[in-house]
Every structure is written in structure tokens, then in C-alpha cells.
Simulated assay, not measured.
Amino acid sequence: MSNSSSFCPVPKEQQPINEYQELQSSWFFGWVKLEPSKYITKLLWVGAWSLIVTAPLAAASFPIAKYPIQFGVWAIGGSLVFIALAAIRLYLGWIYVKNRLYGESIFYEESGWYDGQTWIKTPEILTRDRLLVSYEIQPILHRIKTTFFTLIGLAIAVVSYWLLFVNW
């Protein structure tokens, strides 16, 4: 790996392989690489902490003592929004690195926004990067998409419950 990237003119911090390693080891973006139970636990923590915002908003519309079910439905529904925002941020970070790794060329800046350059990857680096996308990043993106579909399903369940049982 160091031999093939030693002649690469792209600054180290802008090389896609280094961006991938940085993302993988980061506190937030590394969540999606955890085992499923730990990943779900992290997302549930986002939902639990978001209740600090959503519960008072729900209580303002539906006092807990008078409308406990409506309060619960809206507080949980609101926390799903925060979980979805976290999942969107995860997706955007990983898709950016995927696109940088998968592309045949790398756009980079030498010293600032005004001097951008493009470097065409060598066949070895392109092959390495695309293998990394196939075996490492695609499963991550699949997990995040599964998270989205689960959140959509939960949101549909909350709205259906509201329409069928609470609103009438």
C-alpha cells in the first residue's frame, strides 16, 4: 500500500484511502461498523437523548396527564426524526468516501480552494480502492439503508396508530 501511494501527488489527508481510515476510526462514523446490537444501541441512545427535545414539545400539545397516548406517540415520533438525521449524516459521510474511492480520478487541493487539481489513479490503486468499496463500504451503506427502511416502517406504524386509534 505504501509503495503504490508514494508517488501519488494528492496530499495525505485528501487521499481517499486515508479519508476512509479516518472515517472508520472516528467516534460517530465508526458506529456503523460495530456489531449489530451495539449499532442499534447507539441509535437508541440518539433516540433517548432526543426525548429531551421532543418530550417537552409533545407535552406542550398533549399534556401527559390528560393525553398520555398522544404524548407518547408524538414524543417517540419526534425522536425518530433525530435518529433519521443521524442516519442521514452517517450515509452522507460514507457515500462521500465511497465516491472518492470508486472514482477513476481524485480531485484535490494543493494549498487552497483556488488551485484544485485532478489526479488519475493508477490501475493498482483503482483496483485496490474498488475492492475496498465492494468488500467494506457497500455493506456499510447497506446497513444504513436498512436503518432508513426500518425508520420508515416505524414512522408508518406511528402514523397508522395515530390515525386508527388515537385521532378518532
Rank of each mutant, 00 (worst) to 15 (best):
N99H: 06
C8L: 13
I64W: 11
Y91N: 09
Y67S: 02
T54Y: 14
Q70E: 15
I120Y: 09
L131E: 15
L101G: 04
D115I: 03
Y114I: 07
P139H: 06
G112Y: 01
G93P: 01
S2Y: 10
E124K: 07
W168V: 13
E19C: 08
Y114Q: 14
Y67V: 02
A60R: 08
E110I: 12
P63N: 09
T118V: 09
V10I: 02
W119R: 03
N167C: 10
L80K: 05
G93N: 01
I140Y: 00
Q14S: 05
S5N: 07
I144F: 05
S25D: 15
L164W: 15
R100D: 05
L43V: 02
G77R: 02
Q70R: 14
W74N: 06
V32E: 02
L44C: 11
E13R: 07
F107K: 09
V32N: 05
I52W: 07
T150Q: 08
T118H: 00
L43D: 00
F82I: 03
W162C: 02
Y135C: 09
L90S: 03
Y161V: 02
A60F: 10
F29G: 04
P16C: 01
G116M: 03
W162E: 01
F107P: 01
Q138V: 15
Y161S: 01
P36L: 09
Q15E: 12
W168N: 14
I64G: 04
G103Q: 09
I52M: 05
L80H: 11
Q24A: 10
W168M: 12
K12Y: 15
Q15R: 15
I152Y: 13
R143D: 06
I95D: 10
F107Y: 12
V133Y: 00
E19A: 11
W31S: 01
A55S: 11
T147L: 05
A155K: 04
F28D: 09
C8Q: 11
L51V: 04
T150C: 11
E110Y: 06
E124S: 12
W74Q: 15
W113D: 09
I156F: 12
T147D: 02
V32K: 00
Q138D: 15
P139W: 10
A157I: 10
K66M: 12
G78D: 00
S50Y: 15
A86T: 13
F29S: 03
K145T: 13
R128N: 12
L163N: 13
K66S: 14
D129C: 12
S26H: 07
